[in-house]
Design a protein around this nucleic acid. Structure first.
Lengths: 107, 107
DNA sequence: CAGCATCCAAAACGATACTG
DNA sequence: CAGTATCGTTTTGGATGCTG
């Protein structure tokens, strides 16, 4: 297990890192939204078509653990939670930008 | 189903296209290999750690259907199959490049 | 060599209902 | 509002064995 991981690290490299940190397809879509600025949970849910609260939570937690999003809780009633990008997360913008360009060109 | 798809298309957009065409995490790794030039099935399998022939085939077929890779069969014995990128596939290079840069910076 | 077929386990998801 | 809990389904992938 550990040696397997080591080997992987030796062979690669950077793409795996990016993929692991981003996590899933949903995360790309979340990123796209958050580049537009801080968003609330429900805003994300509305903006990202077809995502369930569960999937959204999973993706956000994963991104939080990997330090690309920040979760800010306002202890109000009703609850209010805002998500935004860290610098590390902002830096993913170029990737998404290239994906957009590609999609626009070939989609 | 169809109307759902239509709605999705209307709302977006380009990232989804790119994600759908690429398909899975494996595809990113395949892309990375193919940017280095034409590769045989077994070469891909060796280069991409942890991929099973099934997963590799799935990813390649998907990419083939979406016209980003070309599958060339040499009717020899033993069989020989080479995979390479189309122009559309080559154009994904920028995305992978940005992912590499990000991974190198933050990994 | 390059897969396909089969079986099976694990993960991801959607839907729904419920809570602080 | 922002989730969590649960259920059942779908997807995904590894393992294995077989074929042209």
């Amino acid at each position: 297990m550990e040696n397997v991981k080591e080997e992987t690290l030796v062979i690669d490299c950077s793409i795996e890192k990016a993929l692991d940190v981003i996590g899933s397809k949903w995360s790309f879509l979340i990123l796209r939204e958050l580049f537009g600025g801080t968003k609330r949970f429900s805003e994300l849910q509305r903006a990202i078509k077809g995502v369930s609260p569960k999937a959204l939570t999973n993706a956000l937690r994963h991104m939080e653990e990997n330090e690309i999003v920040i979760r800010k809780v306002y202890p109000t009633v009703p609850a209010k939670v805002e998500y935004s990008l860290t610098d590390k997360g902002q830096d993913l913008h170029k990737i998404i930008k290239e994906m957009k360009l590609w999609g626009a060109k070939w989609g």
